[in-house]
Design a protein around this nucleic acid. Structure first.
Lengths: 335, 335
DNA sequence: CTGAAAGCGCTAACAT
DNA sequence: ATGTTAGCGCTTTCAG
């Protein structure tokens, strides 16, 4: 229709830098493309170039607002570069490293965003022999170069600093399993904030909670039993653990924030739903997802060899679960 | 390696029914496939068959547990049939019907699962001229044959019946926007339950809330102001609206469930996080997603022409936000 | 500055 | 009971 060979069209549409095309020819092609509503056939392009122009993202739980934020970002980052995002749900309970193979070996994806890493060793081995680039998102692992994370350490530190600024000194931490990178970082941030403020670390104030509401509830009970009211604030490793703790405190008749201030990690709409609305630490999850997708595409297309990045930004969103320590109105006064 | 033509391999692997192959040959092929780790190249297959073996799913908000459940199901349904699932996030605020074209015209997907339908008319028009099959999930629309939904009506009815069984008669409804199919159904279910129990419908007890916590909170305040305590239970159109209502009630000093019982629609982990944990109606969202994906694939592959299905199953999950009406312990007694 | 030709890996119609 | 053949629609040398 434009009176040119399809190869010329291909070069023009592909943005071939070496192509030296007459303006008039370009116009004719553009008009024909518009008139025909021409869209390149991705399958043919994939076959020819041996690339799928899709990324895969593995996630353990779609419910978790942390992952939905990451996905939202990743989808944007992919779309910006003309890629699609393919989700691969990987049950945290039964993680199966063959999922990677399915996606890659069928040439369905050119690279993987990995947010899951239970059985770290097995999965890393599977990923490495994969022959496709991958980047860890919100995770770090030994021997893996490509990794983008948020500032778990700084976020935890900021949370605890906020509590300290409110006058709290007896600050407990509902921690995560130390085998997890994020949990370790947050514990370190907690300790760093205490140390900088000259507050001695009391190991009894750190209780491990898993990532369920029940875990948070149990941990909060342990805290109340063993610490005999000698704490006025709690920094919880996740929002879910914080919610569980809130329930345990309510059950014991404590008022939040009058008796105990509570802060959780990761902001989301759910924080507004809790009672009281939960003060949280917000980190740029969506931005991280977007960036990770962009960086992975850079690696795929050879513009970059590796990527390590930490998004340092943290922000404490104060809601009604935290309040300044006031004598007579909290646990400290009662001991 | 197996000493046969690739077309034979193709037919065997593709499960060609007309193929009459010797057991010995089949063995040789199987061995070679295993030895070589052979995987069909999806791009070539797509080019040849003009199909992508992927489905697209459009969603407005990934955070919403309703959609994450649907996605989880859809991904399974797709995977079961060897398809992948491609997510297309479509901002509810700025829905863009071109997303459909992008996915379909680039031959990236063979069909669409549609959970978004703001600007119904425009979007339906875009979908219909698409030339690719689509099925509405958790939605119905006039003139669309393919649609799979859950039992919004029955779920709402069951919720209200549970309250009635607990002795409540003054039951309010925080409703959704009646332009939405789901909201309309739930309102109808509410009314049907009242009617069957011989309880007169009081229009003042129905207050429209949007789907935000704020909306639920505002609606609950309106209810308290206009109804002058003449209600003892609330059925909210969503979990989020219920959470907002809980906050409004707490703020006014009401105890839940002693003063007011609250039920929300759609169960999810978040229900456990609320205070008190929220009684909800559970409908089989994940199953619906899975089924919708399977049915869409059936349509794509010509085994079926259309699909309309309602998952009738509903279940009220009783948690601590509901309690039997007891004289002297609730609003009725106080009027 | 543009065209011609080859071929990516598969499937399906047609042969034997 | 299996092989032959002809493309699917693109990109990429290589020619002119």
């Amino acid at each position: 229709m434009a009176g040119v060979d399809k190869s010329t069209v291909s070069r023009m549409l592909g943005g071939d830098k070496t192509l030296n095309i007459r303006e008039e020819t370009r116009q004719r092609i553009s008009r024909a493309v518009a008139a025909l509503g021409y869209r390149p056939n991705m399958a043919a392009r994939s076959l020819r170039t041996a690339r799928s122009f899709s990324l895969g993202i593995t996630i353990a739980s779609l419910d978790n607002p942390v992952y939905s934020a990451i996905i939202r970002g990743a989808e944007q980052g992919a779309a910006d570069a003309g890629y699609s995002l393919l989700i691969a749900h990987m049950d945290e309970a039964a993680p199966d490293s063959r999922v990677y193979h399915r996606l890659v070996e069928q040439h369905r994806v050119d690279g993987l965003l990995v947010t899951t890493l239970r059985n770290e060793k097995e999965h890393l081995a599977a990923l490495k022999e994969l022959q496709a680039p991958f980047v860890l998102v919100n995770r770090k692992a030994k021997g893996v170069r490509n990794s983008v994370v948020v500032n778990d350490f700084g976020g935890a530190k900021a949370a605890v600093e906020t509590l300290i600024r409110m006058g709290h000194r007896d600050i407990a931490h509902l921690s995560g399993n130390p085998s997890r990178y994020n949990a370790r970082q947050r514990l370190l941030g907690y300790r760093a904030a205490l140390e900088e403020a000259g507050i001695p670390f009391r190991p009894g104030l750190v209780v491990e909670a898993d990532y369920t509401p029940d875990g948070g509830e149990r941990a909060a009970r342990v805290l109340m039993e063993t610490q005999n009211r000698r704490f006025t604030a709690v920094f919880a490793v996740t929002l879910v653990a914080a919610a569980g703790a809130l329930a345990a405190f309510h059950e014991r008749g404590f008022s939040i924030p009058e008796d105990i201030s509570v802060v959780g990690f990761h902001d989301s709409a759910v924080a507004e739903l809790l009672y009281p609305p939960l003060t949280t630490v917000r980190v740029p999850l969506e931005e991280m997802g977007r960036f990770a997708a962009g960086a992975l595409i850079d690696i795929i297309e050879g513009r970059r060899r590796e990527i390590t990045k930490t998004f340092s930004q943290v922000e404490v969103i104060e809601r009604r679960s935290t309040a300044p320590l006031r004598a007579g109105s909290n646990l400290v006064a009662r001991r």
